[in-house]
Design a protein around this nucleic acid. Sequence first.
DNA 1: GCCAACGTTGGC
DNA 2: GCCAACGTTGGC
Length: 182
Amino acid sequence: MQKNHGQTRGRRFWLIKSEPGCFSWAEQCRNVVEPWTGVRNYQARNNLRAMAAGDLALFYHSVTEKRIMGVVEVVRTAYPDPTFSATPQGAKPARAGAANPWSCVDVKAAGGFSHPVTLGQIKQDPALAEMTLLKQSRLSVAPLRGEEFSHIVRLGDWSGLQGEGQGGPEKLISGISETGEE
DNA sequence: GCCAACGTTGGC
DNA sequence: GCCAACGTTGGC
């Protein structure tokens, strides 16, 4: 067993955002494992770097849909974002030899919601009032409390982690430390 | 399409 | 180090 960093054992929870026109939940499900690249914000990058294998993240469709589609599991921790050298939209000179400051992780589809949870639902739910999604709407990789995660996957009727068998979601949810770890 | 929030850049 | 200008994100 890994006894990593002396953390309260168990996974942590995140919310990651994508514009469906750019990369969608359907594509995530088709590809299964996907490198989560292109994050160009330091706070979001630091959140990527804080992820551990086995952590779970809600997959949010921003802009056009504004709803949470399902769950992904972190299967590879942070490594240099290979899309850095591509230098999109002439943003950075990225001269040869410049260090790559950006990171990505690999995430794996881990079950969709039969009822995607909308931003409207989240906004009117008192249990979710403190979500980073609401407080920092522009942050594309945000931490999530265990209670928020379990609440949302119940709302969405999560189909659970693949391969965890019957009662997967409830089993997982019950295993979630409801005591926040800030 | 507009606008608020927020991050980045560059002049001083 | 401050701040104005500008760009981007994302909700409405």
